[in-house]
């Protein structure tokens, strides 16, 4: 087993474990958010193993950085504590649901594994800044520009809903 593969399994195990930890910790919101950070960082590690360094950096900055910080802000602003969540209802049903999901996954892996995505050869420089820049400003130029409209809509919408006094 080469170093690459070993690292992949390490990061993959971390990502899965932290994702499970996030769901288990759902009533302790800060712990859940921190598990999400670990999950995002592990995914960034997988991108590094794939030599997509730029995407790995963006993953850490945007997801582990900005988005989770936003989550923590919301948690703090709402002042959520463990006792602000009612004790779990329908526990048996939830347990059965998880079992059904696991069974479905196992069946899928056992019978339909041939349909799982196959490995493909990546072109030289995949995921680098040059590759990304070329894709962004040629093939996906329109999507890039349309995103600015989306941001404008979100900004205007946030201001109109959250501004304290609208009549000036």
């Amino acid at each position: 087993m080469s170093v690459d593969v070993a690292l992949f399994y390490l990061f993959a195990a971390m990502a899965t474990a932290s994702a499970v930890a996030m769901v288990v910790n759902v009533r302790n919101t800060v712990a859940a958010a921190m598990s999400l950070v670990i999950c995002m960082v592990s995914l960034a590690g997988i991108y590094v193993v794939l030599e997509a360094h730029l995407i790995a950096v963006v993953q850490i900055m945007v997801y582990a950085g900005a988005i989770v910080v936003l989550f923590i802000f919301v948690v703090m602003l709402l002042n959520l504590r463990q006792d602000s969540f009612p004790p779990g209802r329908m526990r048996g049903l939830k347990f059965l649901g998880s079992l059904a999901g696991l069974w479905f996954l196992a069946r899928f892996l056992a019978t339909q594994a041939e349909y799982l995505p196959q490995t493909v050869a990546l072109e030289e420089g995949f995921g680098g800044y040059r590759h990304l820049g070329m894709a962004l400003f040629t093939d996906y130029l329109l999507a890039f520009e349309a995103t600015s409209l989306l941001l404008l809509a979100a900004i205007v919408g946030a201001v109109i809903l959250a501004k304290r006094r609208l009549d000036t």
Binding site: A143, A146, L149, L150, A153, V156, G157, I160, L166
Partner: peptide, 23 residues
């Protein structure tokens, strides 16, 4: 698919706000 999704979000987000326009 990318332009479909972008279009859907650009159409949805303003409508979320417009629905709550009467604050």
């Amino acid at each position: 698919l990318i332009s479909v999704f972008l279009g859907l979000e650009i159409l949805s987000i303003p409508i979320y706000v417009l629905a709550g326009f009467d604050r």
